[in-house]
């Protein structure tokens, strides 16, 4: 733009450098202004405050008995909470990790061994595996069974059989009390 402005200046030599500086400044200010003006438009597309308010969920674990499973909603998805029995814990820990499709020891997937917290979305194509309700088919490993394409998870939520490529995801969570966790 500066070049063309110069082309139209025929024979005006005085103040040319000052004119260039002014035009440069004006262009710079214009550029900054446009960038600053565009920012809110793009920013408005990020998750809004009401969505962010639901980005964490607190769960009180006290009412969940040993052997019981609880499903809670977190960021629009189900989270499976399993108060594991000693047998389930042992079964999870006794597995040869190197034989797993997605090798992970049970200790890497829990904070306290009697509580398993995993996202209840099958890593194959996103169905919700069965196993949370009494009477549900839990599959041969006593974990979870996905009815869509037959993925089978163990008592640590790891993939053992079927088409899913990875273990059920462990969401970020922390204990905010003895029996209270905050997910997310």
């Amino acid at each position: 733009m500066a070049n063309l402005a110069d082309q139209h200046v025929t024979g005006a030599h005085n103040g040319e450098t000052r004119r260039d500086f002014l035009i440069l400044t004006a262009t710079a200010i214009g550029g900054v202004g446009v960038a600053a003006a565009i920012w809110p438009f793009i920013g408005s597309l990020s998750p809004s405050r009401d969505t962010l308010a639901l980005s964490t969920t607190e769960v009180d674990l006290a009412p969940v008995q040993v052997g019981q499973r609880l499903t809670v909603a977190w960021r629009g998805k189900p989270v499976f909470i399993d108060h594991r029995t000693p047998e389930e814990i042992k079964a999870a820990q006794d597995v040869d990790v190197s034989s797993l499709r997605d090798p992970q020891p049970d200790s890497a997937r829990v904070k306290k061994p009697e509580w398993l917290v995993i996202v209840g979305v099958c890593t194959h194509l996103g169905c919700i595996p069965l196993g949370q309700k009494t009477g549900d088919d839990r599959g041969p490993f006593g974990g979870w069974f996905c009815p869509c394409h037959g993925s089978i998870y163990d008592t640590s939520g790891r993939i053992r059989q079927g088409p899913a490529p990875a273990n059920l995801v462990v969401p970020p969570y922390e204990y905010t009390g003895e029996t209270v966790i905050k997910i997310g």
Binding site: F41, L45, S48
Partner: peptide, 30 residues
């Protein structure tokens, strides 16, 4: 950009505009 956040239903429109004003980043400005 407002149309991305607005809900054109008689029961929800007013509240969707208030949501834009309060909860959407820069919504009040837009």
């Amino acid at each position: 950009v407002l149309a991305m956040q607005y809900t054109p239903h008689a029961d929800l429109a007013f509240d969707s505009v208030e949501r834009i004003m309060r909860d959407v980043d820069y919504g009040w400005m837009l």
